[in-house]
Amino acid sequence: QEISPATQSMAALIKNLKTYQADFDQRVMNEYGKEMDYSTGTFTIQKPNHFRWEVKEQFPQLIVADGEHLWTHDMDLEQVTIQNQNEVVAGSPLLFLTSGAKQLAASFDITQLEVKEAVHQLFSLKPKSEESVFDSVTILFEEGKLTELYLADTLGQNTIVKFYHVKQNEKIDPALFSFQMPEGVDIVDSRATVTE
């Protein structure tokens, strides 16, 4: 598997990333460019496989990956879904922040795009797997920090995620990656449906 220069330079940006914390806002645009969804929240990652995606606005949600399972608490639906992490993360765009050069090369065709700002690095990732729901993921790094994600799905819908107050490689309270089951929610345990 020959690793392209673009993949190598992106991998280099992520390699020394142990932890990542940021606030985000996310906008979803339909194919006519009309904003359909706006959400804000916080995003925390700790290598190799812990992350926390907390959505505060419009539809509050908490997604916690504790290294083994993915817990999704949907406050409106009063429901917690439990999934096996390795089955889910494979498809998610968060994969690239925790992958090495080999894994990146195996999952995506990566090219580096022209930018005006010297401190910017812009990468376009085309998922190799057929099942990926994304046509392409574009990632912007400013001064080596992830600041923007642009996702286009196969039906012309675009999602822009912007990250602010980015902190890298700072110590993170492990409690952030352990999920406390709230009272009175329906539990959907999707681990059980793992077909042997």
Partner: peptide, 21 residues
């Protein structure tokens, strides 16, 4: 769910995290 209706016409749109349809 983003559901728009205009008399008999409608657009019933279900999408997930990261805006995936």
């Amino acid at each position: 769910l983003d559901w728009q209706t205009q008399s008999q016409a409608f657009d019933f749109h279900l999408y997930g995290t990261f805006g995936v349809t």
